[in-house]
Design a protein around this nucleic acid. Structure first.
Length: 319
DNA sequence: AAACAGTGCAACCGCGCAGAT
DNA sequence: TATCTGCGCGGTTGCACTGTT
């Protein structure tokens, strides 16, 4: 038995919103709020739209202080770093970028950043048009090339992502690491660095200049306080030592633990960025505890819900 | 100028979850 | 406890626009 539709699809308008519809929706919500019920809202306004559609329109377009386009390099770095950490959790990533919506970031990632990182030049018709199969195929091709930089013949582009520092690999001894502990270390390293820096430009683990030390605040919130105490009261050399020596005696909040673990499977193409087997954030055949299997395979941790904190609207809270 | 292919983005879809009943 | 309902999320699609041939 299928799920009942949320609205009468026969009497619902679809497609692009007109300025008139926008004005109706915006003025109503600004005056009355959503009333906590998106489904009945379009009827109250007199819109022939699905409630979900209204919600999406409001959240992604009409809401105040929404920014569109014009992503800065700093925002690029934030998105890339968080994607490497937690995968395609766009709502969490969006929560770190005021004025950005998850949809916007998702589109930006899919259309630009992913290609940029995979070394796909935009509008490069000199090298021929895109081959059938899309980015997934490109990612496989790049991985098979086992790229470590630009090739001699110039037909295989190296990723734009800066090469990982040598020490980032050093503790893995070219073996496939335990993915969970690796990601722990990775996030500890990210969090620790930012916690130890005061609004100065720092280097993230990929060597990209970074000037937003608070990006990982809520990731830190998800980490067990004792682990944080260890990480952040330590000086950087000790932290570095902890990371490099593979210390794994700190505990993550279970949600983050699972988030990091399950996200590994979803970081499509990122293994190629790290050079295949030595990639510190992915291991073949790693188990995914408690990940549910849907018709399309593992669903990761979509089960965990995200809400914006009332006290701090820009802080995402997993519950 | 026309045809074609690539790109970007708004919008839709289906699913899982939590709260209500 | 089981079922229903609405919300929110991530993935996908459709289409207008742009650049190339």
């Amino acid at each position: 038995m299928g799920r009942a539709p949320c609205c009468d699809k026969a009497n619902v308008k679809k497609g692009p919103w007109s300025s008139e519809e926008d004005a109706k929706l915006k003025s109503y919500i600004e005056q009355h709020g959503t009333g906590g019920n998106w489904i009945t809202l379009p009827q109250k306004i007199g819109l022939k739209r699905c409630g979900k559609s209204c919600r999406l329109r409001w959240l992604n377009y009409l809401r105040p202080n929404i920014k569109h386009g014009g992503f800065s390099e700093e925002e690029d770095n934030i998105i890339c770093s968080l994607y490497m950490s937690i995968g395609s959790r766009w709502s969490i990533i969006a929560a770190q970028l005021p004025g950005r919506t998850d949809n916007d970031i998702k589109n930006y990632w899919n259309t630009r950043l992913k290609k940029k990182l995979l070394g796909k030049p935009r509008k490069d018709h000199q090298n021929g048009r895109r081959a059938p199969g899309g980015l997934k195929q490109e990612a496989r091709i790049i991985q098979n090339e086992n790229f470590t930089g630009p090739t001699n013949n110039g037909t295989c582009q190296a990723p734009y992502w800066p090469e990982l520092p040598a020490h980032f690999y050093s503790n893995h001894d070219h073996r496939v690491p335990d993915d969970r502990s690796s990601v722990r270390k990775f996030v500890i390293k990210l969090s620790g660095r930012f916690a130890n820096e005061d609004a100065v430009t720092v280097q993230n683990p990929f060597g990209v200049p970074y000037s937003t030390p608070h990006v990982y605040d809520n990731l830190q919130d998800l980490i067990d306080p004792s682990a944080l105490a260890y990480s952040f009261t330590d000086n950087s050399s000790s932290l570095e030592r902890m990371v490099l020596q593979g210390t794994s005696d700190c505990c993550f909040n279970p949600e983050l633990d699972e988030m990091l673990c399950s996200s590994l499977m979803k970081i499509e193409g990122m293994d190629s960025l790290c050079g295949g087997a030595v990639c510190p954030v992915r291991a073949a055949g790693s188990a995914r505890p408690r990940a549910k299997l849907g018709p399309d395979g593992p669903s990761g941790i979509r089960s965990s819900r995200l809400k914006l904190s009332k006290d701090s609207p820009n802080t995402a809270v997993l519950y």
